[in-house]
Design a protein around this nucleic acid. Structure first.
Length: 425
RNA sequence: GUGGGUGUAGCUCAGGUGGUAGAGCUCCAGGUUGUGGCCCUGGUGGCCGAGGGUUCAAGUCCCUUCACUCACCCCA
């Protein structure tokens, strides 16, 4: 047997049933919010991710699946979706026809980290982005959409953390002040943070080391440095969330791992997945489109960890598998042939129907019908074949009635619709 | 990249001081003539992660290796 590549996995029933449920809920919701689907490549030129995510980030430095294509070009398996969507926005000059665009995409991402709970090398993200709207209402709308999805999927015990990272005008001031602070307390920081103090100071805030958290307690806060524009922006986002009854907490230590974020940053956290506490994260990235060679375009987006969502929902033990409406139990060769024809006709008519192709006892067939959760069983044996009347059994009520062989699809649909009416009535 | 834990049937796991593998669930077939979920009976299924060593004899001891897993790191 050929083993799997580390960090990748197969998703199959019952998990894949749950996955389909999540995907459907997300897509329906996004459509309601006016988002269109965009499909983007699994791989891109390496340069795209280096430029957008940032050379100094962990993702680019050590986690990307980068390889030389046969012509020598450096290609990379996408570690996230935002860069590609921004690239697509620019390369098709979408802004020319309508600068305001709302997209979503669902698919696999690749990062070469050490696998652990809720973390895989091939993992799936549900991603949504808004281009061309600088208003804080765009941020709020996205967060509302995200929260609504969590509610619809019945994800409980989550907290929404939100922060503002400032913009290109005010963040440098904070960075300088923060760096100076770090230099003073440098000796008390962990080794990692001492390094980060130079390369990517904001990340020090994110350190889980207790001592680092302690000594940075009195560090300058980014909120004190925000320019008027950023401040108002953040306040409006927070107010809007309050007005729409969305609970959140302002977390001044929330920093994101990608360089392109500006202003609003947010994360949905859970304690259900061990160390992997983020199930969704996002924020505003007003500089990215320009950085990638497009016009100056504001943008905001988020990504949800699909695998993590699925793992949380799976603990509810709800079965999302499709169950057949009808199972045809056929006894003997002739009846199996008849059953096959009925099944095909019913499938074509849109009724979920199954049958068994091999000759088995009725008991065995009934067991199978019960096992796969069929609501009704149609029995066709030699007696029925002769009378040209099959037996229709309701598996819940155990009622059995006879149905004529002529036009079985029509007869069966009539029975089924009567039942639905009875349930409604 | 660094540490800890674990590797025995499809799944969950038993297998003191070494003597050539078990249970529950699943699956399959029966429990009298053509009817499911419960129950009963029987059956299928494992080179005990892989390689090497010690021994008359190793799932059980030693070494090596691989995989999985959790944590650090980082993020979704």
């Amino acid at each position: 047997m050929i083993p799997l590549i580390r960090g990748v996995r197969d998703i199959f029933p019952p998990d894949s049933d749950l996955w389909r449920h999540i995907k459907n809920e997300a897509e329906n919701l996004f459509q309601d919010f006016g988002f269109s689907e965009i499909l983007i490549p699994i791989m891109e030129k390496t340069e795209l991710f280096k430029r957008s995510i940032g050379e100094q980030t962990d993702i680019v430095e050590k986690e990307m699946y980068t390889f030389a294509d046969r012509d020598g070009e450096s290609a990379t398996l996408r570690p996230e979706a935002t860069a590609s969507i921004a690239r697509a926005y620019i390369s098709h000059k979408m802004y020319a026809e309508d600068p305001i665009r709302k997209f979503y995409t669902i698919g696999p991402m690749f990062r070469r980290e050490r696998p652990q709970k809720g973390r895989y090398r091939q993992f799936y993200q549900i991603d949504a982005e808004i281009f061309g709207q600088s208003s804080p209402y765009a941020d709020a709308r996205l967060i509302i959409m995200l929260k609504t999805l969590m509610d619809r999927l019945q994800i409980k015990g989550t907290t929404l953390h939100i922060n503002s990272l400032g913009c290109f005008k005010c963040r440098p001031d904070f960075n300088n002040s923060f760096k100076n602070f770090l230099i003073k307390i440098s000796d008390n920081l962990c080794q990692n943070c001492q390094k980060r103090a130079n390369t990517n100071p904001l990340r020090v805030l994110d350190c889980k080391n207790k001592f680092c958290a302690e000594v940075t307690k009195n560090a300058p806060k980014i909120s004190e440095f925000l320019c008027q524009e950023c401040k108002e922006h953040f306040e409006t986002v927070c107010e809007t969330l309050k007005d729409t009854n969305i609970e959140f907490q302002i977390n001044s230590r929330l920093v994101r791992g990608l360089d392109y974020y500006t202003k609003t940053a947010f994360e949905i956290q859970t304690d259900a997945l061990g160390a992997q506490n983020a199930i969704a994260g996002g924020g505003r990235y007003d500089g990215l489109v320009k950085l990638l060679g497009g016009p100056d375009t504001p943008a905001v987006g988020f990504a949800i960890g699909f695998d993590r969502l699925a793992e949380i929902i799976a603990s509810n033990n709800i079965n999302y598998a499709q169950k057949p409406e009808i199972f045809i139990a056929a006894l003997g060769k002739k009846c199996i042939k008849e059953a096959f024809l009925w099944m095909s006709a019913l499938n074509t008519a849109g009724i979920k129907t199954e049958t068994e192709f091999s000759e088995k006892s009725l008991k065995s067939l009934m067991r199978r019908a019960g096992k796969i959760g069929a609501s009704n069983v149609i029995i066709i044996g030699d007696q029925e074949l002769e009378k040209k009347e099959a037996l229709f059994r309701d598996m819940n009520t155990k009622e059995q009635i006879e149905i004529k062989f002529d036009n079985p699809v029509k007869n069966i649909m009539e029975i089924l619709s009567k039942k639905i009416n009875r349930k409604k009535g």
